[in-house]
Design a protein around this nucleic acid. Structure first.
Lengths: 140, 140
DNA sequence: GTCATTGCAAACGCTTTGCATCTGT
DNA sequence: ACAGATGCAAAGCGTTTGCAATGAC
């Protein structure tokens, strides 16, 4: 993200500077239907299997750019991989099935206010929070 | 953890089978005073700086073993590294400073009950939750 | 003496990047 | 035409592992 490609001369990515390319569309389309977090490798594999000649690096770059623009949700798997998911919009949390990966989006007003309160109590600024529930769903 | 070392013939680690070695003690001692999550690399660096000849792999193995036995808290940094911290005990959450790494332990009764309720609502079983607040502390 | 543990270096897996080429605008 | 995007292969980085040597019991 800092070499001769992917950013303007200043090195700062300006949202909206992105071009509309087939690869980008393909990546977005791959995420469109799914309700699950997928890794870059998985997206790449599926696109390849689907006949696309897209490169792995391109998938990584596309996912990173989309995530940077807030169009994707990012999460680290327990194995250390980075997984992406199309984010409906706004702030929310997830309940993920550890077996099938099924995801339920959650609203957590109680959690939000708790986080804000605790953060203020300890004089922390710009506090963001990560909340994730991992369990086994009824079907698994 | 699966080769000719680090485990019994069955391949299963039995807690308590661990031998008392200087390296293990050193790693534990390094974590003892600190209130911050540290990575294996950091622990290794400090021990080396302190005159120890401990190997990086040994640090990784020691931390993994300790975490497996529940003596350490594990967390993934946003950069994808694995950070460890001596865990006081019991279930709790953290408010971490993104700059200096200072950590405040939190109790979150509201979060606990919210998690249980939501999990039950969606018929999920054995649901565990991860909650982490990352902000900038007053000193940074 | 036995067997877990250690250290080193090589191997790994995921991710990033340099560079020449291609393509959207 | 120009700047951003792509693909490939190589490099990076944190982590793991094979193996011979070492040390605990």
């Amino acid at each position: 993200m800092s070499g001769s490609s992917g950013a303007s001369a200043s090195g700062v990515r300006v949202p909206g500077t992105r071009r509309r390319t087939a690869q980008h569309e393909a990546v977005l389309h791959e995420l469109a239907g799914s309700d699950v977090f997928v890794t870059a490798q998985e997206v790449h594999g599926r696109l390849r299997a689907g006949g696309s000649g897209i490169g792995l690096a391109t998938v990584y770059r596309a996912l990173a750019a989309l995530a940077a623009d807030g169009e994707l949700d990012v999460r680290r798997t327990e194995e250390g991989e980075t997984a992406y998911r199309r984010c409906s919009q706004g702030h929310h949390h997830h309940l993920v099935c550890r077996t099938c990966g099924r995801t339920v989006e959650l609203d957590g007003p109680a959690v939000e206010s708790w986080a804000d309160r605790v953060s203020a109590q300890h004089s922390f600024r710009d506090t963001r929070h990560t909340v994730e529930l991992v369990g086994t769903c009824a079907d698994c």
